[in-house]
Design a protein around this nucleic acid. Sequence first.
DNA 1: TATGAATGAGAGTTCATTCAT
DNA 2: CATGAATGAACTCTCATTCAT
Lengths: 217, 217, 217, 217
Amino acid sequence: MPRRRASAARPRARNLESEPEKRRAILHAAVRAFAEKGYHGCRIADVAREAGVAYGLVYHYFRDKDELLESVFDEQWTIFIQAIRAISSGPGTSADHLAGVIRFALDVYRTAPAAVKVLILEVARSPHSLRAGSTRRMFETALKLLAEQVRRGQEAGDLRRGLEPAVAAASLLGALEMCLTAMVVGALGRPEASDEEMERVKQQVVEVALGGLLPRR
Amino acid sequence: MPRRRASAARPRARNLESEPEKRRAILHAAVRAFAEKGYHGCRIADVAREAGVAYGLVYHYFRDKDELLESVFDEQWTIFIQAIRAISSGPGTSADHLAGVIRFALDVYRTAPAAVKVLILEVARSPHSLRAGSTRRMFETALKLLAEQVRRGQEAGDLRRGLEPAVAAASLLGALEMCLTAMVVGALGRPEASDEEMERVKQQVVEVALGGLLPRR
Amino acid sequence: MPRRRASAARPRARNLESEPEKRRAILHAAVRAFAEKGYHGCRIADVAREAGVAYGLVYHYFRDKDELLESVFDEQWTIFIQAIRAISSGPGTSADHLAGVIRFALDVYRTAPAAVKVLILEVARSPHSLRAGSTRRMFETALKLLAEQVRRGQEAGDLRRGLEPAVAAASLLGALEMCLTAMVVGALGRPEASDEEMERVKQQVVEVALGGLLPRR
Amino acid sequence: MPRRRASAARPRARNLESEPEKRRAILHAAVRAFAEKGYHGCRIADVAREAGVAYGLVYHYFRDKDELLESVFDEQWTIFIQAIRAISSGPGTSADHLAGVIRFALDVYRTAPAAVKVLILEVARSPHSLRAGSTRRMFETALKLLAEQVRRGQEAGDLRRGLEPAVAAASLLGALEMCLTAMVVGALGRPEASDEEMERVKQQVVEVALGGLLPRR
DNA sequence: TATGAATGAGAGTTCATTCAT
DNA sequence: CATGAATGAACTCTCATTCAT
C-alpha cells in the first residue's frame, strides 16, 4: 500500500528502509517551499520541483496538500517534543531544563531556519491546523510537557510557587516563539548573526522568560 | 474610480459621513469571516453575505481582498497601538503600564474575540502580511512602543536593567499572545469564562510576564 | 442566488425571464457535446466553447458536471414524458396511443438526433445516473406511464389480456430504444434517410412492437 | 514484449496452459469491478485489488484499459453468440429458437448478474465501444444472427411475413435488454427472485416479444 | 451607489501508463 | 512473470476580479 498516513509513517523503529528516500526528499522540500512562500503561496508543483521528483509522486506518498503539511508539522514537533523530553530527563534543576529548551529552540533556528519558520509562521497558529488532529495534539503536548516541568520545578522549590503551570508554560513558549518571530522578521537578529550575537540573544531570552522583567528585590 | 487605499480611508478627520455605513458593515463582516474561517479559507462572497451586501460592493470599497485584510488589520492594530499610547501616558510606573497593556488585550479578547482572533491567528504571523506594507509597520510599531516603555522603565529604575528592551518587548508580547492563543484554542479558559476566572488568568499572565518564573530572592 | 438545482429550475410557470438565455445555451451545448463525444469523453471546456460562454459560467449555473448531465436528462425526459401524457389523453385506442409514442420518438430522432443520442447512449443506462435521483425517477415514470397505458388498454379490450403491463411496457420501450440505437449506430437507417424510408421503419417498429400486444384474433 | 491483443488471447485452441490463471482472475475481477462501479468509475487499481494481483500485472496481460474492457466484452458476447448458434442449430421452430435465446439470457442473468450488468449497462451501448472494433462487430453479429433466424422463420412459415428481419431482430433484442435493465434496476424483479417468479417473467417476456412475430391466426 | 452575471487563470487531484528491479 | 514506485498529461472546480446595467 503506497499511502502512509502521517501518524503511521514510522511503524517500526526508524530504519532507513521504511522511509523511502523520495518521501524524505518531498518532505524536506515541502519544509523549504512552505518556509519560502507560505503554505497557501506554494503549489504542489513547487514542492515537487524543489524535491526533484515528478508531480504525481507527491500524491503517491501524501493523500493531499493538507496531509503534506501535517506531516511536515508532525516531524518538526516530534523533534521538538523529543528534545523537551530529553532535556527534562537530563541533569539540572527545572530552571535549567526550561533554559535548555529555549536554547535548543534557538539553536535549531540557526541550523534550520526554514523548518522553524514553517513551524512558527504557518503551522503553529493557523486556524486550519489548530482544528486538525495531530497538529493540535502536538501543540498541546508541548504545552503540557512544559507545564509539567514547571509544576515539578515548583514542587522542588526551583521555581516560584503560586503560578499556574499552564499559564507559565504558555507564556514561556510564547515568549520564545515571539522572539523567534522577531528574528525571522528581522527585528532581533538574523540566523546569519555571529555566534556571539546569538549567544547574547539566547542569554537574554532565557533571562527574560525565566527571570521576569522586574528587578530582583 | 473609487479606489481607497486603506491608509487613505479616512482622509479628513473621522466624521461619520466619510465612513459609509456599508463600508463599516463589510469591514466588520470581514473580521468575523476571517476569524471564523481564516483569510485564505473565506471568499469575498462569504464576507459580502455576512455583511448583507451585494457581491460587487466589496470591490467598490476595497481594491482587492488584500486591501480588505489590510484594512481590517489597520483598524485593529490602530486601536491596540492607541491603547498602548494612552496607557503609557497615564499615571503609574512602567511596570504598571505594561501590566495595563496586558490587561487591556485580555479585556478586548473578552468583548471582541473575533477581532483578536484575526489579529492573532491571521495577521500577526502570516508571511504574506509580514511582508506587506502597513501590516508589518504596525507590528513593529507595537514592538517598538513596548520596547521604549521597557527602556524608560529601566531608566526610571522600575524595571531590571541589563535586558535588551527589544527582547523584553518581544517576550512580553509573545507571552501575551500565546496565552491568548491558548485561550482561543481552549487550553486556558474561554471568552465565556466567568469574570473571576478571567481576572485570575489576567493576574497570572501579568505575574509571569513581568515577574518571571524564578522565585523572588 | 445563481445556482438552480435541476429540480427547481422552473419554479413558476415557464416564463422566459426565469430561464436565463446563457443557461439555455449551456444546456443545449451540453446536449450536443455529450452526443458528440459522450459524457466522460467531453470536458466542461468543450461545453463552454460550444455554448460560446466563458468556462466559469457553466459553474455559475450548474453545481458540477453531474448536475449538468442531470439537467440535460431532466429536460429531455420531461419532454418525452409530456409527449406520452399528451398522446395518451388524445383520441384513439390504447394501441393507437402506444403507436403514437413510438412514432413521436422516431420523429424526434429525425429532428434532434443529438438529444436522442444522449438520452439513449449516455443517460438511460449509465449505472451512475440510474442510481442518481431524478434520472432514475424519470426513467421509472416513463415505464409507469406506458404500463398504465397498457393496463387501460387491456381493460378496454384493446390489448391482449394476461400480460403483465410492466413487462409489456419495458419490452415496448426496449424495442423502441434498440431500434433507435440501431439507427444511431447505422444498422437500420439514418436520420438523413428519406421520408419514405423513415416512414417504413416507423411502420415496422410499430408493427413488431405492438403486434404482440394485440389480442389474438 | 508480451502484448496480447484481445482477439489473439487464445491463439491455440482453448487449453488451460495458454490461459494463465492470473489473466483469468484479472478478467473476472474486471467484470465484477465494471459491474460495481462502471467502466469509467473504476481504476486499474480497483481491478488489480479485486483480482488480488499487483498493479502492473494488468498491463502485462492487457495493452491498456480499453483492451481490458474489450476482452471482457469479447468473452461475454462470445458466450452469448455461441449460445444463439447452439440454440438455433437445435431442434424446434424458429419461434422456439428465439424463445430459447430469451430464456438463455434471463438464465445467465440469474447466475452471473455482474456479467450481464456490464454487458447491458457499460458495453453494449456506450458510444465508446460502439466505435471500437470488435465490440461493435459482436453487437452486429448478434443482431445479424437473430435477423437471419427471423428470416428463416418467415421462410418456413413459423413467423409472420412482411416484417423486416433487421427491425424484428432489433426489437427482440431491445425488449430483452430493457427487461433485463428493468430487472437490474429493480423494476421487474431481482436475480434473487424465486424460481417461480423468474419463470413467470421469462414466460411474459417471451410472449410479449414474440407475440408480434407470430402469424395471425 | 449598488447589483450579480460573466470571465478565466490557477491549482489541486486523479489515474492511465511506464519502467527499473 | 511479477511488482509497485514513478511519471505527467488531463481535467474538474474555485474564486478573485471585472463590467454592464
